[in-house]
Write a protein that binds this DNA or RNA. Sequence first.
RNA 1: GCGAGGGUAGCCAAGCCUGGAAACGGCGGCGGACUCAAGAUCCGCUCCCGUAGGGGUCCAAGGGUUCAAAUCCCUUCCCUCGCACCA
Length: 928
Amino acid sequence: MGSTRTMSDSSSGYDPSAIEPKWQAEWDDAEVFRTPDSAEDVEYVLAMFPYTSGNLHMGHVRNYTITDAYSRYRRMQGEDVLHPMGWDSFGLPAENAAEERDTSPEEWTRKCIESMKAQMSEMGFGYDWDREVTTCDPEYYRWNQWLFKRFHEEGLVERKGSEVNWCPSCETVLADEQVEGEAELCWRCDTPVTQRDLDQWFLTITDYADELVDDIDELAGWPESVRAMQRDWIGRQHGARVPFEVEGYGEVEIFTTRLDTIHGATFFAVAPDSEIAQDLAKEDEDVAHFVEEVADPDGDEPNGVATDLTATNPATGEEIPVFVADFVLSDVGTGALMAVPAHDERDHAFATKKDVPIRPVIRPEDSEDDQRESSGQASGDLPDVEETAFTEDGVVDHSEVPADAAGTGGSDPADYDGLASADARSALEDDLPGAGHDKQYRLRDWGISRQRYWGTPIPMVHCEECGAVPVPDEDLPVELPEFVQTTGNPLDEVDEFVQTTCPDCGGPAERETDTMDTFVDSSWYFLRYTSPDREDAPFDTARANDWLPVDQYVGGIEHAVMHLLYARFVTKAISDLELLDHREPFQNLVTQGMVQLDGEKMSKSKGNVVSPQNIVEEYGADTARLFMMQAARPERDFDWKDEGVESSHRFLTRLYDAVEAHVDSPPAGEAGDVTDYVRREIDRVTAIADESYEQLTFTEALRETRELLSLLDRYAEATEPHAETVEAALSTIVRLLAPVAPHVTEELWSELGRADDQRESAERASGETASGEGFVAEAEWPTADGDLGRHQLERQLVEDTREDVRQIVDVADIEDPSHVEIAVAPEWKFEAHAIAREFDGDNLVGEIMSDERFRGEDGAPDYAKDLQAELQTLTETLDAATEAEVLARARWLIAEEFDAEVTVRAGEDADADLVRKAEPGRPAINIE
RNA sequence: GCGAGGGUAGCCAAGCCUGGAAACGGCGGCGGACUCAAGAUCCGCUCCCGUAGGGGUCCAAGGGUUCAAAUCCCUUCCCUCGCACCA
């Protein structure tokens, strides 16, 4: 930050460093943010809890300001709000830090929590700290273990030996979700991931794959991008499973999504690590060479080798060659596939390379638009697949399937001719022997074993006699032993931990030394907040049923797949344990955008980090919060700008000074037109601000409070203001701003209260909420008189009229206007306008002129013709009397601006020549 | 390649769902008020033309629907993110 502190006017008494700690302590003492267990139907507002790195960065501050502002808003509306916070406190970085600093992960983590908690308090975030949840506490992680056991009982836990992702730097395995990009880098440390074969514990999330993908449709409160990412990740595909007879190997099943193309399947392929390929490699040198030397599953080119085998295409009865090919992956589908070069790009490339026949069996769908287009192929013909495959759905056409291929496969290929692809698929599924509908998923089971110390011990014991045996519930939690420095997994080094007895047979046994992926911790923490102290259950079912789902969840997009998918899965699994009625944890989700500097992500390595602590010291937490909420709506990225921060700070200073000045020496003016205008404006601002908070956008609300404060300046310039009106305006601004800038508004609220007390209560406008009663954090949210649409019409009329006056003065080059006369259109024009808006016949002029209300009016036929011409474009207007009132209230604005006398007349009272030009929404103007 | 989200005046950015104002707001720029002056604050202007509120052109490009399009539909181009030899 700059070294010159010119921001705060030295004459201002606004001193965040004094105000902010004071109110933080007051809130604390008064337990403003506590949510009693007895609260019903709470509004659950939640930010993703932080990993305990020791420092809040700007991303955190933004995230937590959003939920804090929203929950404060809800609280002011009288809702019971649950806004808890906790610590995602297990994980490898704590072990690394412990190593570097010669301490233990536990000690390090506790320090981090302490420091982050202090930083959160400094920011003024209002959390119910009675509900704090810390995942590295045995009181928390025992429930990870307990849930693991319940899942185990339900068959949701498996121990599988498998090839797993291994990060050599973190010395642990990673879930598929934690390996990023084509380069396969560790999500934490960007080290290239290698493969290892290990026995691992898995949660069978795939059991819920269908429900997880189907329920995405119901998550209407989630961003489309996150929903799409989850769908992609689960990657469900509908298709068919079909057995092919392979000589010597019996039936080998393939999976295909394009069963309609089966008559064009001209070869068969198996993965290099398939049983068949491994088997053949023993005999066949070519195959062995390919499998050992050539096969490159990561390469771009499809490679393969012919075998001596053939497979029988069950649709045509043909014998087709079998290849071992590296583009066939053993963990996708069944690890074997039928290849249709005519209708699949990759199969086409391979067939061309290996000189396998390419036979089209699908033609483009007949459609009038298509007739001559689509690369010159007339519809009704099979596509030219010499150069490239035709991969779209179309219509089955078996005219090129050799006649002699038919017969052995059962039905006649011609039977399917003319069917649309989708229909052919279901028909073939029914007809082909052994075939059936099948689904495939990209989603794999969730490997949760980590060979690290700082995590939840997996509550299993390995007994030579009994195998893997769960630790009995009464022995939970299995607590972590003291940390030892070592390479590899520290738990393996602690004999007292490892050596145990088998719960089943009592014989010697060894504890499982793997700990759980930390995503297990965060997959249910939002449930624990409902009853963090329960010692007999992970959470209180009745309360969780009442309080869940989370109404508004806010966090980073980086959790779009992992955390959010795991949490959804665990919620469903817990629901099936009958511990919870809900099956989805988060109703509305906002993924907040990044805080950037010059369009770049802030990062330590780039050295472009703006530290929240510095900003708080320099400007105060309120300024930082206000700037962030004002700069952009939550889901968008935005640039950190010093100018913007300063501008926010100046605004708070001005507001502070305005309130102080008002309280010290209230103005003594009487109410009048100007006052009426200001009063109306208070309602308008309130209506707009409320909408903005409701939509969680904030920006409009904050802008309106700025404008209202400016208006008070103009008010004071125009006339001696009416004290209560000024106070109402200030009270409104303070309350509308309170969710975002809670400290300064708290201070000002109590100042306004002081002013209120000085006055006789009888003087107070009736129905007005008294300022300064209690905390602004608990004050009543302002409500607007009149609906938003009406307010906007009024504001529009004033803006348009002022604009017109300016234009006339400018265009007509009027030197020094002395008198501005404004004439509202006469009553009858408003009536005619209203008729026209409703009118749906042909002859509006006739309709109007036959109405005797208009017959005698000056200019009625012309106006009727005008209306007829604009018939379609007429929008709602105010009525004549309201228009006159609104303009009368706004008169002073024009008078101030041009230093001229301004009169506003109803149409009936104004000069006839002038009034002729007036229309509803557009008064006539004469300037002299 | 597939999927999602975008492209709005010098810059940032609202509006688009629910069609009807040259298009909110901020920054920057210009002019004015206040001031000894600077800063802060306030007012106005900031696509082009215009001596009474007018006219022209405009929301990536092109087409379409409509009385009317930044807004709805189609095509193309560009950007960002996610997935990707997935059968």
